[in-house]
Design a protein around this nucleic acid. Sequence first.
DNA 1: AAACTATGTTACTCAAAAGTAGAGAGCGGA
DNA 2: TCCGCTCTCTACTTTTGAGTAACATAGTTT
Lengths: 204, 204
Amino acid sequence: MAKAAIASPWKSETERKTERALKREAVLAAAAHVFSERGYHRASLDEVAQVLNITKPTLYYYFKNKEAMLFACVQHGLDMLEAAGGAEDGNGRAQLAAYLEGYAAVIETDFGRCAVRISDAELSEASRKKVRRIKGEIDRKIRQLVTAGIADGSIASSDPKITAFALAGALNSIGQWHPQAGVPADKKLAGEYINLLMNGLAPR
Amino acid sequence: MAKAAIASPWKSETERKTERALKREAVLAAAAHVFSERGYHRASLDEVAQVLNITKPTLYYYFKNKEAMLFACVQHGLDMLEAAGGAEDGNGRAQLAAYLEGYAAVIETDFGRCAVRISDAELSEASRKKVRRIKGEIDRKIRQLVTAGIADGSIASSDPKITAFALAGALNSIGQWHPQAGVPADKKLAGEYINLLMNGLAPR
DNA sequence: AAACTATGTTACTCAAAAGTAGAGAGCGGA
DNA sequence: TCCGCTCTCTACTTTTGAGTAACATAGTTT
C-alpha cells in the first residue's frame, strides 16, 4: 500500500468522514464536561459552544437537540462503566474489587459523572428505557460477582441484590460531592472507598 | 389561666400567627416533596402550588422566591441530618452505627433527600456558604465519631477524613437511586448498607 | 463556471416558568 | 360603617435558553 510521503493539505473522502466524527466527539466531550460540572439544566448550549469556540447552532449540526447530547453522554459513560475491566482470575472478592476499582476510575471522568449524577428523568421515555437497560446490566454484573464471591466463600453477604445496589451507590457518591468541597480526589480516595467496602470499619 | 370551655370560631392574635407559620411549613413540605422528587430545576412552582390547592402567587406570600424555598428545604434537611440522634453509650463503632442509622432514616424523608441530592450550585453564594458550614459540621461530627472509634479500638481506619466522607457518600446514595428503580426501600435497605459499611464484604 | 455539499454564522422565534401588579374577599377593630 | 390588615386570586411582564431560518463561505464535483 502506497503511503503518503508528504502531508497533503487536501483531505480524502474518508479523512473528511473521520474529521466529522472527531468533531462530533469533541462536541460530546465538551457537553459531558459542562453537563457533569454544572448539571444538565444549568448548562446552556451556549456554554458548550463557547468551550469549543463555536456558536450554538453549529452544535445542531452534530446533534439533533440537547437531549440527544445528554443521552449520548450518559450512554457513553454507562458503556465505560460496564466495560470497566477487572481481573479475570482470583476469587470472587478479588474480581469484584478489581471491577470496582475500574468503576471508580470511570466515575472520575466527565462521562462517568454524567452517567451517574444526572437523573434519567431528564431523558425522554425512549432514551430512559435504554439507559435503564444498561444500568440493569451493570447491576446484574456486580450482583453476579457478589454471588460468585459468596459461592466460593470469599464474600459474606446475606443479600446480593441490596449489596450490589449499595456498592454501586457508594462508588457513585465519589462523583457527587467531588466537585464541590476540597477533597483529595486522587487515587487514594477510591482506594479508601474500596478498602472500606471490602473490610468494613470493624477491626479484624 | 382560664381555658376556653368552648371552641371559638374566631382566632386570637397568636393563633393567627401560628396558623401562618403552619401554612409556611406546609408550603415548605410541599416544596421539599416536589423538589426531591423531580429535582429543583424540573420542579415548577405551579406544581408546588397545585399540590397545596393554591396558586403560584400565594407561594410568594410565604417565601421571597424559589431559591429561598430551596434554601429553607436544604437547611431543614441538613439540620435534621445533623440532629440525627445516635446512642450516647457504647464504644465508638456502636455510637457511629447508631448515628448512621439515624442519618439514613432522615435521608428517606423529603427534606433529607433535598439536602443530599440537590447540588448546592443551585444556591446563591450567600446561601451556599451557610450550607457548606452545616455540611462541614456534619462531616466533622462523623469524623469525630470515627476518630473516637479508632481511639478505643473499635474501628479500624487509616484515614478518618476520607472514611467520614465515604460513609456520608455511601448513605447519601440511598436517596439517589431510590426514586427510580423498584428498590426494596424499607428498613432493610439502610440496615444492609450499614452492615456492609461496618463489616465489609470479606468474611470474618 | 455553475451547482452542490459541508460547515458555520447572525439574527431571529418560541415556550416555559419565574416573578409582579393590582384587584378583591373576609375578618376584626375603632 | 368604614378602615385596615391578611391572604389569595386573575392577569399580566420578564427572562432565559432551546431551537430555527436564512444566509455566507469554501472546497468539490460535473
